[in-house]
Each structure stands twice: as C-alpha cells, then as structure tokens.
Design a protein around this nucleic acid. Sequence first.
DNA 1: GGGTACATGTAATCAGTTACATGATTTA
DNA 2: TAAATCATGTAACTGATTACATGTACCC
Lengths: 185, 185
Amino acid sequence: MTARLTTPSYLVLGLVDKLGTASPYDVKQAAANYVAPFWSLPHTQVYAQCDKLVEAGLLRQEQQEEGRRRRTLTVTPDGQDALREWRKDPAVVPVEARDLGLLKLFFGSDVADIGPAQVDHHQQRLDEYVQLSKTSDLPLGVAATLEFGMAYERGLVAFWGELLKSATKPDSETPHAIENSVRGQ
Amino acid sequence: MTARLTTPSYLVLGLVDKLGTASPYDVKQAAANYVAPFWSLPHTQVYAQCDKLVEAGLLRQEQQEEGRRRRTLTVTPDGQDALREWRKDPAVVPVEARDLGLLKLFFGSDVADIGPAQVDHHQQRLDEYVQLSKTSDLPLGVAATLEFGMAYERGLVAFWGELLKSATKPDSETPHAIENSVRGQ
DNA sequence: GGGTACATGTAATCAGTTACATGATTTA
DNA sequence: TAAATCATGTAACTGATTACATGTACCC
C-alpha cells in the first residue's frame, strides 16, 4: 500500500488476473499481443510494476531457484479487491489526442506532404484490427475495444483521405466537406 | 543544435511563429486557447522549451532589463527552416489511445458502472468544440483539427451510448450492434 | 556446436509534472 | 490599498525510456 498505483500498475495487475498465473515475461507477451495498440509498455516497465505489485501485496510471487529462475505471479485476494475497485471507478481522465500529424496540420502543413503516409498508416492498422476481430470467442471487453479501434482508424483514414481530396480540388476546400465525410464514416 | 528537439519544442516554436512576436506567457496563453484539448503543456514546459530553442538558435530573445523583465521571442531564420522541415516530414508516429475507460472496458468493467460518466464527458467536450467551431475566420489547419476533435468526440459518445444500450438489453449484446452504431456515426 | 529466441534484470538518463516562490502591474 | 492577475522562474521528484548486460533453453 505504500507505493501509489498508476495505470500501468493496473494494466499489469489486470493482465496477470486474465492469465491466471503468469511470469513477467508472459505479461510482457500478453501486453504486446492484446493491449499494445492502445497502451503499450516496455518490458522494463512490466518488471518494475511486478515488483511494485508484489511489494504492495497485490501479487504473490514464486521464483524458481534454479535454471531460468522463472517467476510465477498470481493475483492475491487484496489484488482482486484492488482490481474490482478500479474497474468500478467511473472517474474520467481526459485524454489528449497527441497526434503528431494533427499537430502539423494545425501548424499549416501541406496535406499533400503528410497526408498520404497518414492514410497508409491508418489503413494498415485498420486492416490489422479487422483481421484480429475475426478471432472467435473474444471476451466482450476485448471485442468492444477492438470495435473502438476499428472505428477510430476508419475515422482517420476518412479524415485524411477527405483532406487530400479537397486539397487537390482547391475550389471545394470547405470545412463542411471534411466534417460530413468524417461524420458519415 | 546540441539539444534534441521534441514535439513540445516544435509546438512552442510553431506557436511563436504563429504569433509573430511573443513572450513565453503569450505562448502559454495561446497553447491553452488553441492546442490544449489535444496537446497541452504546463507553463514550466513552455519556459523550458523557450530556453532550449533560444540556446539552439531557433528563437531570438530580447529581455527587458527593468520592470516585469518581459521576454520577447521571435523565430530566427534557422527556426523557420527547422519548422518548415518539420512540417514537411511525413513520418508517422503511431499514437496510442491510452484511454482509461477503454482499458477498464478491456479488463471487463461493467458498462453500467463507467459508461454514463464517459458519455457525459465526451458530450461536454463535443459541445465545447461545436461552440469553438462557430468562431469565424479560423485558419484552415485549426478548423481541420477542430473537425477532427468533433468527429472523435461524436464517435465516443456513440460508442459508449451504444454499449450502454446493448448492456441494458442483454439479448442484443452482439458486437455487430456496436460496430454498426459507431461506424454509422 | 552455434545461432536464435527465451527470460530476466540493472543503470543511466530524461522528459515532464508538481510544488514552491516572487515580484510587477492592473483594477476595484 | 488590497486583491487579482500578470509574468517569470527554481527545485524536487517521478514515471518512463534507452542502453547495457547476462545467462538459459531450444532447434538446426
């Protein structure tokens, strides 16, 4: 209880909970596979958070004395409580887009310069999500976040695509053309 | 040239450029008014970046010796070059959503617990953007980012709203219901 | 036997936030 | 003249990244 828990803490705690029993490495893998697109963290963070959670009594740890000295982590009852509390807490933390492309656009970048790469990028991510969403038996929450991801990428593909279109036809450069296209997507 | 420039550096540089001549305080104000919703930074950051940019020769600084010791900043030709380069660079830096609500959803939060606050929050931000977008004579880039912001908030209102709807009618809890509603927005 | 992926860490650094601090103008 | 806001900073901290390091198991 000494150390304050941050979102990455709960991310690790939640993943261990999801996995049942897991080594930090398993957590790292799970993070890379499931949450990476919308909340990634390097393996050093995973290890750091595991230590913190063990110290706080939210994770129980057993370590092999030999060989790879693999650690095995399990969520303790205290950990379960903490996780339940966290899940229930409706407090909204405002998120900032912090999109570099958007910022450049704000500062007057030429859409012809940066637009095409944006479209490519978001189309590619969209394709990945669509592929992932075809996996059967996804838990509801996971499916929902994937749906969100797809809607988001679709929106961005449309946003940049539409900007490009109106940039090449300078006479139709009205903001409303953009708005409608994004909304309509 | 010694210190590496980060996105906040360019944000400050870009704002000074936009303002023509500005004190760090002006930059702080401009940041709060224009870019805050999607890329905010505290005033200490503004001052730190100004120092860095002056040292790098991208900003020129004149300081009053008396009174409020106000600093006046202008973008140097080198600064203009750096800014132009930056604006042109199409490199895409992937953004992570890092949305706490989404993460909780991923870990199985009950939509009834966290959904309503999400809807309220995003609706409120949407209203703010709509209000802002009514300002006349917005530069094209600014208008475009605002349009993006509105599309984003609209999407999130729809996303959580739809989740809430399907959560209360358990028999229609198919992912497709969610997908269609978000997409259709 | 040698390369690759597994698994785990440490140490240094850094960007960014929070808290604290202060004096200068303006306005009621 | 007192309060509010203007304008500028310093210092401490901390969450997180980057770079470095190392030994284990598996597969060809």
